[in-house]
Amino acid sequence: MEELVVRAKEKDESAFDELILLIQKEMYLIAKTKLKNEDDVADAIQETILLAYKNLRKLRDDKYFKTWIIKILINECNKIYNRKKKNNISFEEKEVENFLKVEDISYDSIGFDIFIKDLKEDEKLILTLYYYSEYSTKEISKILKIKENTIRSKISRAKIKLKNKYEGELLS
């Protein structure tokens, strides 16, 4: 990835595209923890890509590209989230919920976003960063500017919730 970042910084557009495509699933999952509506997720990702493209040269350490862009993404998600008003929940969101309730659950195929969908948004975000993106609690602490102990306790609490939720289904 670092090599791609170097090339992208030298205005190699295909390298930049490749970088984005490499992490697009991760971006989608992270945005989904905060935003339910697909249009909002798409907006957040679009803004993030444009900001990253415009400001890539300002990235000091190439190895932190992913962390850097995730920070941008989380901020973009927060911005969109903050604009949301009460009652402005699209039908799309409600229907996603309904649909998922009747879906067969199998941990061999279930998507990570669906698996954690009932957690609180901060728990979802932290779990996604920890288990999917494989960041350490220390790194997550830096990304989210939350104490590492808080990150650990949120992970622990989220795991208990998941255990309770899936006890009769996945764990049997």
Partner: peptide
Amino acid sequence: MNEIEDIIKKVAKNNVEIPAKI
């Protein structure tokens, strides 16, 4: 608790399908 830890890790390896819109 270890069991749920393993399951979460396993699920995290599953393919994530990005909606066509995204």
